[in-house]
Design a protein around this nucleic acid. Sequence first.
DNA 1: AAAAAAT
Length: 483
Amino acid sequence: MSKDFSTLMLAEPIQRAIAEMGYEAMTPIQEQAIPVVLAGQDVMGAAQTGTGKTAAFALPLLQRLLKHENGSASPARHPVRALVLLPTRELANQVADQVAKFAKYTKLRSAVVFGGMDMKPQVAELKKGVEVLVATPGRLLDHLEAKSVSLGQVEYVVLDEADRMLDIGFLPDLQRILAHLPKKRTTLLFSATFSTEIKRLAESYLQNPVLIEVARPNATASSIEQQFFRVGDADKRLALLQLFRQHDKQQAFVFVNSRLGCARLARMLERDGVRTAALHGDKSQDERLKALEAFKAGEVDLLICTDVAARGLDIKDVPAVVNYDVPFHAEDYVHRIGRTGRGGASGLAITFVTDHEDRQLAEIGKLIGKQLDPQPLAVGRPAREHSARAEPRNERPAAATRERPQRRERPERSERARHAEERQTYRRGATPRDPLFDAPYEPSDSAAAPAWEVAPRQPAPQHRSGNIKSKSKVAALLRPSGS
DNA sequence: AAAAAAT
């Protein structure tokens, strides 16, 4: 039985905003974390993706800022009292949006600063004074150096996607930022994934923390159906096009491991006639935000992205996620597929596995506690790629083979040759031509059930319902499990 | 190994 937000007795302006946003029943992480944050305690919170972690910290935080005056006399009328740090610019933008909505009817001001944007408007905003500051680490340090912001009055700091914020790439920046904060403060850590090592590290930043776990850490949401397909490197794009068509061209996030691969796939898919946008770190911030907006607006069907989009992004009703490449880190798998199946909606996660990705796949299986067994995927090939389009074709599929998809009859062109040809096509400004996509689907393994039906259905994982542990229990959890 | 975050 989940309680309503109305039972929290939050300040009227906050309640009004909640109602306006259509929030009613709390999710388990909200139900458990909000009272603890309201009580002013440090929190380490783990809950599956898409279960409303932002509201779980933002609402009680705003409540406390409203009800508890800033104790020390401050030179600024609006000192930063709460700081929220995030690992990507898009996520900072999104969380800032949500905070602003929650705070809409209060007198509290919020702002967001992240890189890739002009400093000046951010400086102006900070100068006016804000109680809640949302930021990415790099740009925040810039502002600290430029003395356009002071963090000496911060009472609350939130590390969202905490395990990422504490990893080696972010830790130095994070430590430099935390050095600007008062020692006496409340610290809140949230993520869907926490490794044992990161938990231990995290504890050194917390005082008397309450550990809130509404699911085993690293658990995937049970509303997401996970499918794994064995494909060859050269078949991935075809497989993607085929599945896209089989799924009625529904929208999806398509994750690629490198920025170059991401840009390249997006370009090729566009040529294939798919409405595509690319989102990765080599794009300008303007392009990045536009790509996301275009996807949200439904102007784009496949968002081709790197792990910049793996965490936290909350877009309603994304039907599917495709791991075009198996992620290098197993936790990223959990976050990537968490872009679908949000708020309990159903979602589909498809992962392509090539032979050299088996090790990474095994790591994922270990992390999420499932036996992962990639199914063969019959990749249909057009009868011909270049000429003879008008030739009548035999629509009856060939006889079934239960084995791996057939290889091409003719020797494969080298990767290089194909890329060269693609570049040529581009220079000529050719109109999108799609031998692979618009051509009638001709399965190489016709007796196989449609690809999206052959995947094994995993039983939903059993989650412990929420339990709050004291610090001693936290310490126990942090001990290596073997001992 | 790669991406991300400052320019």
